[in-house]
Design a protein around this nucleic acid. Structure first.
Lengths: 207, 207
DNA sequence: AAATTTTAGCGAATAAACAGCGAATGTCAA
DNA sequence: TTGACATTCGCTGTTTATTCGCTAAAATTT
């Protein structure tokens, strides 16, 4: 009763679709998401997953898929951790120890970064923070604040229109927005035309 | 007992109407809110939602809809967000829009990266992946796998003792572990003394 | 190694459920 | 008794699911 690679992909897609949208995908949407052109294929996958007890749905009813949790199919570590977005932190790499050896794993989650702060996420476009190792496609976690100390990486709105990610430095009535990219020039504008939207407190990258 | 797209919209509309006004909408108001000109349509939607246990109302009574919480079903992303470490994804930076403006934010969480995979986290020590923008102190999310395709970033155990983070390339009986740092030399060892612990699927950084 | 089963995939035809309309009819409370 | 609402009927599209027949690859069994 194991699950195949492809079946897992289907399961994952449906799961994340429901997360995002709050309703289940149509077979066509599943097909699109997985690069399948035939609904028959999707149908078969869904049926198989149903047979394995990972999904439930009503016959002939659109968007009626319920995603059931993977009982037993997952390894222990992720089971309870994944339920709340926590991941086991197994130690430092290059520490010269086999990974398994770590005793009592700590865990880590986004909550550790956000705490009780008011946080939102933006996806980064462009290379203006390259030297900070924040690159195109990364997600930055931003704490909503109106002011930030000199030198912080902030999301700044210039003239109410352009949101940019820069280090901020104040200099009298002027503000310097400094890209962390040696090839790019700083933006220097009057303090009153800059509005700080938040400060960067974390970075998340998916491969 | 899943819900369709349109039903979700109806449910959401009623929910937010009650939030705003403190009393439930008439069928006509629901219709207006959703661009429906026929009350019959509204009636059908409300009946269906009632059947699914998401609403309750008294027969033939005006404005008598009660919105029931979605037990077991999906809450709206934004509500659910806070509860479990999901963060609102407000868009791409440098997109030229004030941040507040976004209507229906998507959300993001570690779960989006991990899905149903078996994942652990390691903290990175050293600068061997600097050119990949993975630096000292970063946390890497690692999917536990035994093999990874050429060119992937993996956690590799050499001779059962040293865990390192490198790109992997196979070359016959040899394996080349390539640091992403121009100043560092690759490690070339016999394939049998290398054990892949996992592949990197994400990066997390705290400031 | 060969045979078999399971998985994965395609396109097309068919059928069911979903979503919608307008109009006539009924009910409730003030 | 009069507004304001709710109910129900018949009818029309659109969306979505089901199924059939067919390949091909991968995994399992003999």
């Amino acid at each position: 009763m194991a699950i195949t690679k492809r079946q897992r992909q289907v399961y994952d897609f449906i799961h994340s679709f429901v997360q995002r949208n709050g309703y289940s995908p149509s077979f066509e949407e599943i097909g699109d998401g997985l690069g399948l052109s035939s609904l028959a294929t999707v149908h078969k996958h869904v049926s198989n997953l149903e047979k394995k007890g990972l999904l439930r749905r009503d016959y002939n009813r659109s968007r009626s898929i319920d995603v059931l949790p993977m009982r037993g199919l997952l390894k222990r570590q992720t089971e309870k951790a994944a339920a709340e977005g926590r991941l086991p932190l197994l130690g430092r790499i290059a520490a010269g120890q086999p990974i398994e050896a770590v005793e009592q794993p700590e865990t880590i989650s986004l909550g550790d970064i956000t705490r009780s702060k008011d946080v939102f996420v933006l996806q980064v476009k462009g290379e203006s923070m390259r030297d900070e190792h924040i690159v195109d496609g990364d997600y930055v976690l931003v704490e909503k604040v109106q002011n930030a100390p000199d030198g912080e990486i902030v999301v700044a709105l210039v003239d109410g229109t352009d949101a940019t990610l820069k280090r901020i430095y104040r200099d009298g009535a002027k503000v310097r927005l400094q890209p962390s990219n040696a090839e790019m020039a700083p933006i220097i504008v009057p303090a009153k035309s800059v509005q700080v939207q938040g400060r960067v407190i974390g970075v998340l990258r998916k491969y």
